[in-house]
């Protein structure tokens, strides 16, 4: 993919992100947010992070959209047109300054894919070379997540489980509990 396609992708990403914030109709905003996740997944795939792209496409564009839509059916699908807070001039001055500062700092970051950058010389070579001999797993992401960092993944699974239980505790009503036919 050449540079102009990347720029178009980034532009679409910013446009959909702004659209998701600016659109007043919340169902439309949720759908725009789903397309934002899709463009983000394309961007991850371009950067070579295929696993992250896959997860972003499935969760961001698929499951989260369903969750948002179902939540909106429980509420009024319209943003409250409340009073905008007064005195926003510090934001108008401060945010561009912050952006310029970040752009200035970004000059010092290592180039993308630089083999001499600190993350690429510390543990990554060991993972890349030892994954197949030690675990027979060519996908290094899977071996890192499930073997080298398996305790982290176990706790993350516990977090997902907790989210499910918490949702059930808050939302479960009598019809689920008592509807054994």
């Amino acid at each position: 993919m050449n540079m102009s396609a990347n720029l178009a992708l980034l532009l679409l990403l910013i446009m959909t992100a702004a659209g998701a914030i600016l659109i007043k109709d919340l169902i439309g905003a949720v759908l725009v947010l789903g397309s934002y996740s899709f463009f983000l997944a394309l961007l991850w795939a371009w950067l070579g992070a295929v696993d992250v792209a896959f997860t972003e496409a499935v969760v961001g564009a698929g499951l989260a959209t369903v969750f948002f839509l179902l939540t909106l059916f429980l509420t009024v699908p319209r943003e409250d047109e409340g009073q905008l807070p007064r005195g926003q001039w510090p934001a108008y001055i401060g945010l561009p300054l912050l952006g310029m500062l970040l752009l200035y700092i970004a000059e010092d970051l290592p180039a993308f894919g630089d083999p001499a950058s600190p993350p690429n010389v510390h543990l990554a070579p060991e993972y890349l070379t030892q994954s197949v001999p030690l675990t027979q797993t060519p996908n290094v992401v899977a071996s890192v997540l499930m073997d080298y960092r398996s305790l982290d993944t176990l706790i993350e699974t516990a977090v997902i489980f907790t989210a499910g239980v918490a949702t059930a505790c808050i939302l479960r009503r009598s019809s689920v509990r008592g509807s054994r036919p």
Binding site: L74, A142, M146, T157, I160, A168, L171, R172, R173
Partner: peptide
């Protein structure tokens, strides 16, 4: 071991997604 752990994660995530959606739909 990695495969069995992944099966566990898959079951957990699938059931949790189903449970959240059912609870939301039921309340609505």
């Amino acid at each position: 071991g990695i495969f069995l752990a992944q099966v566990g994660v898959a079951i957990d995530v699938a059931v949790t997604a189903l449970s959240i959606v059912l609870n939301l739909a039921d309340s609505s």
